[in-house]
Computed example of a mutant assay.
Amino acid sequence: MVEWQDRPLDPLCPVVFIDAIHVKVRDSQVANRPIYVAMAVTCEGQRDILGIWTGDGGEGAKYWLHVLTELRNRGVGDVLMVVCDGLTGLPDAVTTVWPRTIVQTCIVHLLRNSFRYAGRQHWDAIAKALKLVYTAPTEAAAKERFAEFLDSWGARYPAIVRLWDNAWASVRAVPGLRRRDPAGDLLDQRHRERQRPHPPRGQGPRPLP
């Protein structure tokens, strides 16, 4: 386990998800402890668990700075986006370790939290309306869709509106991606498709099995 946790990592991770599960851990006594998992989506589109860490529930910026510095020291030099939710101090630690990395609120968590304030009979309609917000192509379009959501649902569910208002700075990260970064920068290449190598000269494409 130690060898796996210390293994070298890819220098480039387009997306890293950081989340926690709570499990019962026996120390001096049995208690629920958070187990934090960092999972990357690689340039090849594969999922890779970067590491696992045990916490005590009181983690802050210092803890996350240690975790992210460990990942950087193991080889992760650049990350396009870190997706997380409600982990105190993590956004500040991300900015310290990878200054150009975008911190994005996990939409799944945000939707689940939204449903806590809504009647079950309205979940489908609310999910459909909010999808127009977080899939909008630009921040301006996202604001327009959110204004429409406010008109339709704001009076009935003001808590959902407050929830999204408070999270807006990180929810809008995707529509707000920068467009004019230096050539060769990771953000500048986010739409590039990985090219397959050409077959050796004289060889045609390999037949399908």
Rank of each mutant, 00 (worst) to 15 (best):
I107M: 13
R33S: 07
G204V: 01
V97I: 12
N32F: 12
G60S: 06
L208T: 05
Q46G: 07
R145E: 13
A183M: 02
T42Q: 04
R162G: 13
C84D: 15
A129K: 10
R178S: 12
K24T: 06
R206S: 04
C106S: 08
G55Q: 11
Q104K: 06
D188Y: 10
E148I: 14
L71V: 03
C13R: 01
G75W: 02
R194H: 03
Q29E: 04
Q195E: 08
V97M: 04
A118C: 15
I21Y: 05
G60E: 06
A127Q: 15
W123Q: 12
I52Q: 06
A118I: 11
M1N: 14
D10K: 00
Q104G: 08
D48A: 05
R100A: 14
P199F: 03
L9I: 00
G154F: 07
K62N: 11
G51Y: 06
G45P: 12
G60D: 13
L12V: 15
K143T: 11
G51L: 03
R26E: 01
A155N: 03
A169E: 06
P207C: 02
V15N: 07
H122D: 11
P14Q: 02
T88L: 11
A125G: 08
E148N: 12
I102L: 12
L111Y: 10
D188T: 10
D78P: 00
R7Q: 00
A38H: 12
L132I: 01
S114M: 04
V133P: 01
W53F: 10
L132N: 04
L68Q: 09
T42L: 02
V76L: 02
A38Q: 12
M81E: 09
P91F: 09
M81S: 14
E148P: 10
A141R: 10
E59L: 06
D124F: 04
Q195K: 09
A169I: 03
W168D: 13
R179P: 01
R7K: 02
D188W: 06
T138P: 08
R116E: 10
R162V: 02
W153I: 03
V15W: 07
H122R: 05
V171S: 07
K24H: 10
A147P: 02
